[in-house]
């Protein structure tokens, strides 16, 4: 509740100069991310927005360690995630890293092991990290994401998309992460379910002080639940800053184009065409 008073000056998550280049068949090179830097405070929430091919998913995967950056570092609480402390074994380092950053993926069904029931899924995570994996703890985790006893015994294919995504969030919370990366985590859900998940995330953030990195193509969603926003285009950051400023009074012509393209009350697709002409001219 009183996160503001206790928040230390040093940011929780620091991404510094993240760069990733892929070699394409045919010898060309694709720079998926080019010197991407940002910070997130404890309990803060950052949006990374962009269209397909902007590199936002690559950034998300570099944060959690699924993709190794060519250059740049990710640090949590001042510790570089890539370097292993001498006192740690490889497995211990892996688990310690996992407790720093967790991730929720886009497609709720295939991001869960099809063989495992919800209970079994959480037990696997808890045991992996040597946590209490008793039924009480599992029920508490399920309850935290709004799932009950009936869902506990169900496998992913017996759950709805929204329920699967709740379970995926519970799995991430099971290891008590400091940062939760959400890669298009509500994009595949129905509108009414999407709002439920967004509200759940907001509650979790208030209760646990986990910081959110919200990777999304949906500007309205990012506008609603983040404090800082990074706008990416073709691997580079075109604009970043407080969400209200970036998405309220954008300076970059591309950000303006993105915003002008979002349908809303009194909108005309021609608005976007005009913004495109400006973006192309710039």
């Amino acid at each position: 509740m009183s996160a503001i008073e206790t928040r230390p000056e040093a940011p929780l998550l620091v991404a510094d100069g993240l760069t990733k280049t892929y070699r394409l068949p045919g010898g060309e090179r694709l720079t998926a991310a080019d010197r991407v830097s940002f910070t997130v405070p404890r309990g803060g929430s950052l949006g990374v927005v962009g269209e397909s091919g902007s590199g936002k998913s690559t950034v998300a995967r570099m944060l959690v360690g699924l993709v190794r950056p060519d250059a740049g570092t990710v640090a949590v609480d001042g510790r570089d995630r890539a370097t292993r402390p001498p006192s740690f074994g490889r497995a211990a380092h892996r688990l310690a890293r996992a407790r720093e950053i967790q991730m929720v993926f886009q497609d709720p069904y295939i991001s869960l092991d099809p063989r495992l029931t919800a209970r079994h899924c959480l037990r696997t995570s808890l045991r992996l990290h040597g946590r209490d994996a008793g039924d009480g703890r599992i029920a508490a985790l399920l309850d935290q994401v709004g799932l009950g006893a009936r869902e506990a015994g169900a496998r992913p294919h017996e759950l709805s998309g929204g329920q699967c995504q709740r379970l995926a969030i519970a799995r991430a919370l099971a290891v008590d992460p400091r940062v939760l990366v959400l890669d298009e985590a509500v994009a595949a859900l129905d509108v009414s379910i999407q709002a439920q998940i967004l509200r759940l995330l907001d509650e979790i953030r208030r209760d646990t002080e986990v910081a959110l990195v919200f990777v999304s193509h949906d500007l309205a969603v990012v506008r609603h639940i983040t404090e800082e926003t990074v706008v990416m285009r073709r691997g580079t950051v075109v604009e970043q800053g407080p969400t209200s400023r970036v998405l309220g009074a954008p300076e970059d012509p591309y950000t303006r184009l993105l915003l002008a393209s979002v349908p809303r009350r009194g909108w005309d697709p021609a608005d976007a065409e005009r913004a495109r002409a400006e973006a192309d001219a710039a």
Binding site: R90, R94, M103, F105, D107, I110
Partner: peptide
């Protein structure tokens, strides 16, 4: 290639 395998990796599983 399925994300649940990525999820296990993110969870720190070897």
């Amino acid at each position: 290639a399925k994300p649940y395998v990525d999820a296990y990796r993110v969870q720190g599983m070897g």
